[in-house]
Simulated assay, not measured.
Amino acid sequence: MRRRTTRRRRTSRPGEKREPVLVGYGVRTASTRRRRRKGDGTPSVPESSGGVTTLEPAAQPAGRADDVRALAKPPVRKLAKDHGVDLLDVPCDGPVVTRAAVEAFIAGRRPTAASPAATPVRSVEADTRIPVKGVRKATAQAMVSSAFTAPHVTEWVTLDVSATMELVERLKADRRFAGVKVSPTLVVAKAVCLALSRTPELNASWDEAAQEIVLKGSVNLGVAAATERGLVVPNIPGADRMSLLELGEALADLTATARAGRTQPAQMSGGTFTITNVGVFGVDAGTPILNPGETGILCVGQIDRRPWVVGTPGAASGAGERIEARWVTTLAVSFDHRVVDGQQGSRFLADVASILRDPALALTF
């Protein structure tokens, strides 16, 4: 025989009001207060079970009961907690506090030092405008014209120039060069002039109207100089016909005139090939842009001490080779590919590098 069981239903006590519970919202206790609606400037009023209401001050009393709790979803409660917001202070439409209402309250309140949402305000300084005129304006226009007219190609080589540095020291001790500031740039300038004699295509220009290559009759060697007015490129006419001493004197005069701001426009026109030395700024190398009307430009990087493999190459085991600290630099040549092909550009760069590796090879040119 089956035993009949009965389930006892819980009955409400007399006078007890049942409250429906929504999961995650919490239970509203008897000690609640009416929430302000958006835009309502009236203070909150508590509700009593007897239906009689009394006005409550707008500010929450310090002794507010802990069982007063607003209805809100758990993610909304966490958002409010993270930003130090009391949900009872958040105005909203309806009985449940929404995320949008909390976010609006956070955005509209005045940040305080104790508020985690407060972020420091960074001061913004005004921009500075520098008028481009004179030498800087002319240089900018020339570089844009060159970059978008001539198809540039750049090649690189890194080499040991210890022999060149030794030559520089000997020249400094030579009485004939007593009044000349001898530097590696002087040897580079001479090497460029000698290399151009074997590859004259880099000492040329492109005639767009006639569609012809114009080989120049002499080397007007431009040397880029950084001045307070900007970058200027005066040139030395007939540099290929000068001795090393004459070339050194011309370089010294060119540099002094440029730094004093006395370079004349005529001295910056008619160049056929340019040398730019970025090594003085501690830079290893760069990709130079051609001066308008020229076909080649050589960039010289800084000359510093680096570990280098020296000695006579031996067998596959590397016998006869050793590592030493040597003076090393990087050269980069850019050229107009309409005038100079890869073979010509590579030969020119290789010739300059060979002379700087061993200046005695200059006697063979």
Rank of each mutant, 00 (worst) to 15 (best):
R4L: 10
T11A: 13
S12P: 04
R13P: 04
R13E: 13
P14L: 11
E16R: 12
E16Y: 07
R18F: 12
P20M: 09
L22Q: 14
V23H: 14
G24Y: 08
G26H: 04
G26I: 09
T29P: 07
R33E: 09
R34G: 02
R35N: 12
R36V: 15
D40R: 10
T42A: 15
P43C: 09
P43Y: 06
V45L: 14
S48Q: 07
S49A: 14
S49Y: 08
G50C: 09
V52D: 12
T53Q: 13
A59E: 13
P61R: 06
R64C: 01
D67C: 05
A70K: 05
A72M: 03
P74Q: 06
L79S: 09
H83S: 12
V85W: 01
V90Q: 08
D93R: 15
V96C: 00
T98H: 00
A100H: 13
A100P: 11
F105A: 06
R110Q: 15
P111C: 14
A117L: 11
V121F: 05
R122Q: 10
T128Y: 02
R129F: 13
P131C: 01
V132N: 05
A138M: 11
A142L: 04
S145K: 11
S146Y: 02
H152E: 12
V153Y: 02
V153N: 06
T154R: 07
D160E: 08
V161Y: 04
A163M: 01
M165P: 07
V168T: 00
E169F: 09
R170S: 15
R170W: 11
L171I: 08
L171G: 02
L171W: 12
R176D: 06
K181N: 14
V182R: 01
P184Q: 03
V187Y: 00
K190E: 08
A195H: 03
A195E: 05
A195C: 07
L196Q: 02
L196D: 03
W206N: 00
D207N: 12
E208M: 09
A209M: 09
E212V: 14
S218C: 15
V219T: 02
L221Q: 00
L221F: 02
G222E: 01
G222N: 07
G222Q: 02
V223P: 02
A226W: 00
E228S: 13
E228F: 07
R229G: 15
V232E: 09
N235T: 10
S243M: 15
A252L: 15
A252G: 14
T257L: 10
A258L: 05
R259G: 00
R262W: 04
R262N: 14
Q264D: 14
M268A: 13
G271Y: 07
T272W: 01
T272R: 00
T274C: 06
I275N: 03
G279D: 06
G282V: 05
D284Q: 15
L290N: 05
G293Q: 08
V300C: 07
R306Q: 14
P307A: 11
G311Y: 09
S317L: 10
S317V: 08
A319D: 15
E321Q: 15
R322C: 01
T329D: 03
L331D: 06
A332L: 02
V333D: 03
D336P: 08
R338Y: 13
V339R: 04
D341M: 10
D341E: 11
Q344W: 13
R347E: 15
L349E: 03
A350E: 09
V352W: 00
L356W: 05
D358N: 08
L361I: 11
L361R: 15
